[in-house]
Amino acid sequence: MIAEQEGQAGAFDAGEVIIGHVSNSSIDHPIIHLPTLLGINFSVTKHVLMLWMVAAFLFIVITWSTQKYLKQERPIPTGFMNALEAVVQFIRDSIVLPSVGRKFLNVWTPLVLTFFFFILTANAVGLVPIFEVLGLFNHFVLHAEHDSMIGLLLHGGTTVTSNFNVTAALATITFVSIIAAGTQAHGFIGHWKNLAPPGLAWPVYIILIPIEIMGMLVKPFALTMRLAANMTGGHIAILSILSFVFIFSDLFHSALAGVGVGVVVAVPLAVAISALEIIVVMVQAYVFTLLTAVFIGMAINVHH
């Protein structure tokens, strides 16, 4: 795909290629056209499509394996179910239980689990070069039109969690859950009273209450930025290192220079960073769920 774009544009522009690979596909050329309602264009871009695919994949795989397990005569998990159960148990016992506590454990574990599996799958799908392989196949075999379904699918990034809108939506769910958890544990008025420590002189509250409200809004913002920036950053690093090949062949006007740099530096380094990305994918899913559990726990177990 990089080579294809280079051929069209003449000189190689690394910045444009990299942005094209990590950002969403253009809303002007959506994959599925949908009408505009209330001023919002509901047309499906590539990130929205990937979002649906990840959600559908998770729904089918996890529901199917759990249903199959529940229908067994002897309740002994095997294969995929065994791994799933280990992960579920790990998240319940070492993420949710220490922060949320035993009383509300079963209320908040499903939400945290959903977050974990969704983010993990969405991150991991971004590492699989599905559309790059499709682009290569298209270039040599299919020769699809630019405006056809396949042609439209080739533009834009695959990692939905690298889109700030997606992570902001996830963090909004966390934000609402924090308020819901506090309300459930202490009542609606009790939760808002818990924001500031009691028993201080009234002038202190004039300073403290705005700070607390800002702190409340900052937490989901930190979650949003952290996940999206981490997922975008890794992809940009890999793509910039791979761009060396084309930059050097442009610079020396010889393909040999590019291939040489590719073999010696760019490809080994990109492989190493991809390996690191596999760890990042898991760590980021883990950190998001951990922070969600900690924030929910802070609303439930208030210490002053």
């Binding site: 993420i95 937490k219 951990l290 922070l291 900690v294």
Partner: peptide
Amino acid sequence: GPAAAAGYTLIGA
């Protein structure tokens, strides 16, 4: 967990 939360809140704010 709590330390990570505090760190991210600091930079996020």
